[in-house]
Design a protein around this nucleic acid. Structure first.
Length: 215
DNA sequence: GACCAGGCACATC
DNA sequence: GATGTGCATGGT
């Protein structure tokens, strides 16, 4: 008898309800990395406004963004909230990108996950979720992205203690699931979908697909 | 007007 | 290691 992972059941239900998400919503690895920083504790719609401002100014590339004065950068990303601190965080990421990877995410992607992840985490303003979002969605590295919705869903379904650490949550996925880039990509996106729709601070379980869709 | 949103760094105990 | 706080806009 083969035991099916509870995580896989969740994945199958979400996938059959929402379908493929084809994340990240961004056209280039650089846009994805910028979006990952801008979306910290922020509604994605506000991030889109900020990214559109950068596109209009034609500065959504490493070289142009690096050359931009930090106060000008802050004014462009204002709609995404926390604009002063996020301008600094973008600058610190750009420092790393330019000085270690010649401004190229393609170059960054050549480095192994195990050595690259600690380097990203050492960049001021890049914590575990932002690092893993960049690694998975901009660089194609097989690492699971844990976010607030993931924690809510797993803890409310009794799979994890809500207060467990980021690494604890991530270890669960890496232990239970095959190392599959496409699966990691879709699964995180599906957590965001069900989180936005149903797994809010005040849960809306009545019509949640995790409780009310067939396997 | 209150609540929420795809975190993180930093201070303090 | 755990807990508290500042950061800020825009939608519901």
């Amino acid at each position: 008898m083969k035991s099916v992972s509870g995580l896989l059941k969740i994945y199958e239900r979400l996938f059959s309800f929402y379908g493929p998400q084809n994340w990240w919503p961004g056209d280039t690895p650089f846009e994805i990395a910028v979006g990952a920083i801008l979306t910290q504790n922020t509604n994605w719609g506000n991030v889109e406004k900020a990214i559109n401002n950068l596109k209009k100014e034609r500065v959504l590339n490493a070289k142009a963004l690096y050359a931009l004065p930090v106060n000008k950068l802050a004014s462009l990303i204002k709609p995404s909230g926390y604009f002063n601190i996020k301008a600094k965080r973008l600058r610190s990421f750009l420092d790393f990108l330019v000085n270690n990877c010649n401004g190229s995410l393609k170059r960054m992607a050549k480095e192994d996950l195990s050595s690259l992840r600690p380097k990203l985490l050492a960049v001021n303003g890049i914590g575990p979720e932002t690092a893993d979002s960049i690694l998975l969605y901009a660089l194609g590295k097989p690492v699971f992205v844990v976010d607030a919705y993931t924690k809510r869903v797993l803890s409310r379904h009794g799979l994890m203690d809500y207060k467990a650490s980021y690494e604890d949550y991530q270890r669960l996925f890496h232990r239970e699931l095959d190392e599959n880039l496409q699966l990691f990509n879709e699964f995180h996106a599906l957590f965001v979908m069900v989180g936005k729709d149903y797994c809010k601070p005040k849960p809306l379980c009545e019509r949640c697909p995790l409780l009310h869709t067939p396997l």
